[in-house]
Amino acid sequence: MPRLTATKRHAMRFRLNGHPVEGHAEPRMQLADFLRHELGATGTHVGCEHGICGACTVSVDGMLTRACLTLAVQVDGCDVRTVEGLAPEPGRLSVLQAAFRRHHGLQCGFCTPGILMSLDRYLQTNPNPTENQIRELLSGHLCRCTGYTPIIRAALEAAAVLASPTQQEDHVHV
């Protein structure tokens, strides 16, 4: 049973968007800070640091996860996905991201990484969501700019595009 002492920085490894990464963390370090400061993956944003705003939402082993309510040491060996992993290749947006751009689903963009991660995950398991389901999912996020309406529109359009038979199958993410 490993006991990691408080004042030391401990080596940890996990997969980030499919690639192995490693770094060092004190036990008290939040996953959000590890991603941003230790790995330089600043796509994940930090708003409230107590689970309310949803800006820091990532996926850990397929579970939506508040990176501010998770310790870096807890994800040792896990599969972590963040907003940086959504676009299929440089210069090309995912279906969901493109729908956000079309519908002005973001303004300042602070909340966007978390919302994209929630929707990406949700649409993978619920390909035909109702507007109410999208609204309920978004209750786990705060956006101070858009008034949510364009976000909901973008999400529903992305779901429709993904469900259409012409959609190519090569997207890892929605």
Binding site: M1, R3, L4, T5, A6, R28, Q30, D33, L71, V73
Partner: peptide, 17 residues
């Protein structure tokens, strides 16, 4: 805010915890 210092134990069995 950030947590104060603590040790972290990952228990593998209930008895360890």
């Amino acid at each position: 805010m950030k947590p104060a210092l603590f040790d972290y134990v990952r228990a593998e069995t209930l008895d360890e915890a």
